[in-house]
Amino acid sequence: MTKPLFFKNKENNYYLFGFLFQPRVKNANNRKGVIFCDSIGSEKYFSHRVLVNFARLLQANGYVAFLFDYYGNGDSEGDFESTRLESYLSDTKEAIEFLTQETKVEEVYLLGLRLGAVFASLVAAKEIGVEGLVLWSPVIDVGEYLYDSLRSNLTIQGIVHKRIKFNRAQLIEQIKNNTPVVVEGYVMVKDFYQSLFDINLKTIRLRPESRVLLVEISNKVDSEKNGALDLIFKDNNQCLRVVIQDDPFWILKGTNQRYITSSRLLFEKTLSWLG
């Protein structure tokens, strides 16, 4: 059964949207639930169908899968500009609570994509009851990620003003001085930026018993990037690091590219790791 629903973030008193994929078969996997921690903005938009298809694959294999939208994202309540690190973490915790209360799930796994992988890691580091983490192409340095995301603002400046009026460093200054900046249609405000920019996945310490599958998805061999994986959770001896050569499905550059709705190797690897 696939069920769309709203559930409440009781801590913050707002509603979040989710899709619950209940297992189609009875087997030992029925007690395992996978909560998807999505990315944000355009990455969320372009990767949506891939996540849905993996949720369906989990469902077909007996797992419970739960896709939900953070506050101010997707179909959930609120505007993006009101979101902060705290709201993302609180929403993830509420999703865990909802899933364990609404289903017979005994083991909860968090599957994070890009920035969602950072949120999943932060929650797993603090919450007891997260059995394992699956991180798909996690953002490592969030400050760098936010800085990169400002490129789209430059493109729009070029179209509208016919020149670049503010470079990225100036845009960052604007944000810090309380002038919101539009990034791919999403408004980045000071509180959002400041709550996130100094997070680095390399500095997050998981509990030693946490199982982790860390996957880098890349369409080219990037030894520097892949080497960076070794620096994440380096104290954790239960972390499996994998590089999968495939197109990054969360990016859309134009219509002359593959329409990606699944990633065979990624799906197989993740499914087998979940056990």
Partner: peptide, 18 residues
């Protein structure tokens, strides 16, 4: 074939889907 809806999109390239 879109969002969470049932069905699939078989086009390999985006412009074919468009």
């Amino acid at each position: 074939g879109i969002g969470e809806s049932e069905g699939s999109v078989d086009e390999a390239m985006l412009f074919n889907l468009f």
